[in-house]
Simulated assay, not measured.
Amino acid sequence: MPRPRGAAPVAYALTFTGLAGAYWPVVIAGLYGAGALIAPPTRPPAPEFPDASSRLETLREYPAEVDLPPGAAGRLVELTDLLDGLLAPGWVSEALATDPEGVHALARFVHQDIPESVDTFVRTRWWTRVAPGSEPPERHLKRQLDLLHREAEGPATGLCEAETRRRRTHTRYLEDRGL
């Protein structure tokens, strides 16, 4: 049996003490509904990362359980795609493995920053119903995801610049050999 939410216990108390009178069904339904509107909605649990190989996939699935605004959902897809490209097995992840700061930043994105951004959005979203006129949490989520995307582009840009320098160096090497 589901646990009564909000003002339902008050409605039951009014009914059993006889204060609701003949209108007891209306009192119970009204107070139960009011309590359900005021109480925060249930939210999905924070993601758990069972092993290293499923971390990014878990991160992709977690926000799918939450109703994100379209702009934020699109930015989150872009961010997870960028992280997926950086963490996919191959030369990029091998090159990134030599940069401890980059590895730390990516681990922080996956384990802390993105789940925290989505979780705080879910926790504060319902407050806009209770406190109209406050700054919408959608704006903060979009801004947070923009900042994280900009920061995640740093390691990608660094790898691109390193490969560009490597290509130019090899070209000069070949030119100096007279080929």
Results as ranks from 00 to 15, higher is better:
Pro4Phe: 07
Arg5Met: 11
Ala7Gly: 00
Ala8Trp: 05
Val10Ile: 11
Tyr12Asn: 04
Thr17Glu: 06
Leu19Cys: 05
Trp24Val: 03
Tyr32Trp: 12
Gly33Phe: 05
Leu37Cys: 02
Pro41Ile: 04
Pro41Ser: 06
Thr42Arg: 15
Pro45Tyr: 11
Pro47Glu: 08
Pro50Leu: 13
Pro50Asn: 04
Asp51His: 07
Ser54Lys: 09
Arg55Thr: 06
Glu57Gly: 03
Thr58Phe: 01
Arg60Asp: 07
Pro69Arg: 02
Gly71Leu: 14
Gly74Glu: 15
Leu76Gln: 04
Leu79Pro: 02
Thr80Gly: 05
Asp84Ile: 01
Leu86Tyr: 07
Leu86Cys: 11
Gly90Glu: 04
Ala95Phe: 01
Leu96Phe: 05
Thr98His: 14
Asp99Asn: 08
Gly102Val: 09
Gly102Glu: 08
Val103Asp: 00
Phe109Ile: 09
His111Ser: 10
Gln112Ala: 12
Glu116Arg: 14
Ser117Arg: 06
Thr124Ser: 13
Trp126Asn: 08
Trp126Met: 05
Arg129Met: 04
Ala131Asp: 08
Pro137Tyr: 02
Glu138Phe: 01
Leu141Tyr: 05
Lys142Pro: 00
Gln144Ala: 15
Gln144Asn: 15
Leu145Ser: 02
Ala152Asp: 02
Gly154Arg: 15
Thr157Cys: 04
Thr157Lys: 11
Glu161Ala: 14
Glu163His: 11
Arg166Gly: 11
Arg168Lys: 12
Thr171Lys: 05
Arg172Ser: 14
Glu175Tyr: 02
Glu175Ala: 11
Asp176Arg: 13
